[in-house]
Computed example of a mutant assay.
Amino acid sequence: MGMGKNREQIQGGAMLMLCAVIWGVAFVAQSAGMDYVGPCTFNGVRNFIACLALVPVMLFARSIRAKGVKTEKGAVRPGDNRKLLVGGGVLCGIFLCAASLLQQMGIQYTTVGKAGFLTALYIVIVPLLGIFLGKMPSLKVWAGVFLALVGTYLLSVQEGFSISSGDVLVILCAVLFSFHILLVDRVAPHVDGVKLSCIQFFVSGVISMVLAFILEKPELGSILQAWLPLLYTGLLSSGVGYTLQILGQRKASPTVASLILSLESVFAALAGWLLKGEALLPKELFGCVLVFAAVVIAQLPSWKKKRASD
C-alpha cells in the first residue's frame, strides 16, 4: 500500500516537473512572439488556441464520467454549479487576461530569466493576501517575504536605484496572478476544472483581441509568422501544461505541487541562457537564489502542517 502511494507521488511529481519545464520555456516563446505581433494580439490568439486545445480534454473527461466510475462508499460526485461555473470562469478570465497582458508587455523590456523569477513571486504574495481571508502567515512566511523583497531588489534594481518598466509590469503581473490563484481556489472545488479553464481562456482571448483591434490592428500575416511561439504557448504551455497540473495535483499535496511548479522560474532562467544567450550578473544571480529560497521557505510551514496531519 505504501509502495503504491509512493509510486503515485513520484508520478505526480514528474508530471508537475514537466509542467514547470513547459511553463519555464514558454517565457522564451512569449519573448520571441513579440518580434511579430503585439502583446494583445499574441495573448488573444494564444488563449483561443488553449481554449480549443481543452475541448478534447473535456470530451475525454465526459467519456470517463459516462463509464460511471464509483467513488468511495458510493459517494456521489457533486455536479457543476452552472451559475458559479460561468461567473467564476468570467472573473478568472478577466484576471488571467490582465495578468497575462502585463506579463507579455513586461517581457518586451526585461529578460526572460527576470520575468520568470518575478512572476514566481505569486507564491509569496498569495499567503500575504490570505491575511484578508483570516489566515495569518507564520514567521517563516514573513521571512520568505523579506527574502523575496531583497531578492527582487537585487534582481530588478539597477545602478541609480532605478527599476526597469518591464520589471514593474511583471511584478504587477505576479500580484494579479495571486488574485487569480485565490479566485480559482475558491471556485474550482465546486465546478468542473477543465470547463472552468476553457471559459477563462475564452474570456481572456475575447478581451485581448478586442484590445488588439483597438490598440494594435493585428494582421493575419504577422500572426502566421508567429505560429511557432503561438502554438507552443497555446497548445503546450496552456493546454498540455494545464492538464499535467491537474493530473499531477491529484497525486501530490497542493503545497508540494506549488513548490514544484515554482521551479518554472528556474527553467525560465535556464531557457533564457540556453536559447537566447541572456546572462545574469552575479548580483542578479544572487537575487534569483534569494527569490527561490523565499518561495521554498514560504511554503514550508504549510508542508510541515500537512505532514503532521497525515
Rank of each mutant, 00 (worst) to 15 (best):
E284K: 00
S208W: 06
P39W: 02
M3I: 09
L16W: 10
S302T: 12
K70A: 15
A61S: 14
L139T: 13
S164L: 12
L235I: 15
G106S: 05
K195V: 12
S262E: 10
L261H: 12
V191K: 08
A26I: 01
L300M: 14
K114M: 05
F213V: 06
I10N: 01
G239E: 01
K140C: 05
A226K: 00
T119F: 06
I125F: 06
T111E: 02
G12T: 01
L59I: 15
A32S: 04
V194K: 07
Q225C: 14
A99V: 04
L274C: 09
I125G: 04
L102Y: 05
Q158I: 07
I94M: 10
N43W: 01
A279G: 07
H190A: 13
L274N: 02
A26D: 07
S138E: 13
A174H: 08
I131S: 05
L52I: 08
L91K: 12
M17S: 15
S204N: 10
L59M: 15
I260A: 08
A32L: 02
A188P: 10
V37P: 04
L196D: 00
C173A: 09
G144T: 02
M34V: 12
G151M: 07
N81S: 14
L300V: 09
G193T: 14
Y109M: 12
L84V: 09
K70S: 13
P282H: 02
F48H: 01
A115C: 11
V194E: 07
V76M: 09
Q225D: 06
P301D: 00
T119N: 11
N47P: 06
K5N: 14
V194Y: 07
V296R: 03
F202M: 14
L280C: 09
Y122D: 06
L285F: 11
K73V: 15
A268R: 06
K5I: 15
G116L: 10
V76F: 01
A53T: 13
V76T: 14
K304L: 15
K305D: 15
Y36K: 11
V141W: 00
G248D: 03
L228P: 08
A26C: 07
I214G: 07
V256P: 02
P78V: 09
G106E: 08
L259S: 03
Q9W: 10
A98M: 14
A212N: 07
V291M: 07
Q200V: 05
I125N: 04
P218G: 10
L228F: 13
G113N: 10
T152A: 08
V21T: 11
A148L: 06
E219R: 14
L155G: 00
V187K: 02
S238Q: 12
P254Q: 02
S138D: 13
E219M: 14
W227R: 09
A50Y: 03
I171S: 04
F161V: 08
I171G: 05
T233G: 03
G234E: 00
L300S: 04
L91E: 11
G234I: 01
A257H: 04
S258K: 02
D310K: 14
I107T: 01
W303F: 15
V210S: 07
A308L: 13
I107Q: 03
V28R: 00
F202G: 12
V124R: 03
Q30G: 11
V266M: 13
G113E: 02
S302G: 12
V69L: 11
A53S: 14
A75M: 11
M34F: 00
I163D: 05
I297K: 01
P189E: 05
